[in-house]
Amino acid sequence: MAAMSAADSVRLDRWLWAARFFKTRRQAVDAIKGGKVDVDGVRAKPARAVRIGQRLVIRKGPQTFEVHIDGLAEQRGPATEAQALYTETPDSISARERQREELRAASAAQPRPDHRPDRRDRQRLADFKRGDRD
């Protein structure tokens, strides 16, 4: 692969960006500094060098990814090359699928209105929120 690095290690923030876990390096740095990324079970810093074979735990919002590094890259490339840089553990995949199903079930259980509110409904709602109860 052309995106693979010849070096034996890469900065963690660069790897997360190249592997497409974050859209920008700034977002990767913020996530790392916020304690959302662990390398081999230890909280990391953005400049930490990662190597092939290490295990990362990445928390993005409600999702948690547990991956093993299979390749190194310093440049962001196509998504197919980015997916070749890591392997997600089966436990991580099943946990994310289970969470996705729970969210689907929760959103399906919420009642939905049968129509959009018209002008009168919006005015009544605004009055209610302001505390005007004629």
Rank of each mutant, 00 (worst) to 15 (best):
A73K: 09
L16F: 00
Q27L: 08
G35L: 02
H68S: 12
T87Y: 05
P111E: 14
Q99I: 03
D40I: 04
A28V: 00
K36N: 08
V50S: 09
R43P: 05
T24R: 10
A105T: 11
Q123V: 05
P46Q: 11
W17I: 00
R59S: 02
R25L: 00
Q99K: 13
A79M: 05
T24W: 06
R14M: 06
S107E: 15
R104H: 09
T87L: 07
A82R: 09
S94G: 12
K36R: 12
E102N: 11
V37K: 14
V29C: 08
K45Q: 10
R98L: 06
A28G: 05
F128T: 02
D121K: 10
V42E: 15
L85N: 07
A31F: 01
L12H: 10
R96F: 00
Y86N: 04
E97K: 14
R122G: 03
D118N: 14
L72C: 01
H68F: 12
R14C: 01
D30H: 08
Q63M: 10
R98K: 13
E101L: 03
Q75F: 07
L12T: 02
V10D: 11
D30Q: 10
L16N: 08
D38E: 15
D132G: 01
A2C: 07
T89G: 03
R124H: 09
Q110H: 12
D132K: 14
T80E: 14
T89Y: 08
L56G: 05
T89H: 11
W15I: 00
A6C: 07
R48K: 14
K60R: 15
R76I: 00
F128W: 09
D114Y: 09
D70G: 03
R112F: 02
P90H: 14
V57L: 09
I52E: 13
R104T: 07
L12V: 00
A44Y: 11
P62C: 08
A31T: 02
R48H: 08
A108P: 06
A108H: 12
I69P: 10
K129C: 01
R116Q: 10
R76H: 08
L16I: 00
A2S: 15
P78W: 09
V39H: 14
F22T: 01
K60Q: 14
R11K: 10
L103K: 15
R25E: 07
D13T: 01
D30N: 11
V50K: 14
A109Y: 13
T80H: 12
I32N: 11
V39T: 06
D40T: 05
W15F: 00
I93E: 15
P113C: 03
A84V: 00
R55E: 13
L56C: 01
D134P: 08
R25F: 01
A44C: 02
S107N: 15
R26D: 12
P117S: 10
V50T: 04
A6F: 06
L85H: 05
T89S: 13
G71F: 04
T89E: 04
D118W: 03
D30G: 03
S9D: 07
R130I: 00
D30I: 01
W17P: 02
A47Q: 11
Q27M: 08
D91I: 08
R119W: 06
V42I: 08
L72G: 02
R11N: 05
R119G: 13
Q123K: 13
A84T: 04
R55F: 05
A31S: 06
R130S: 02
D70V: 00
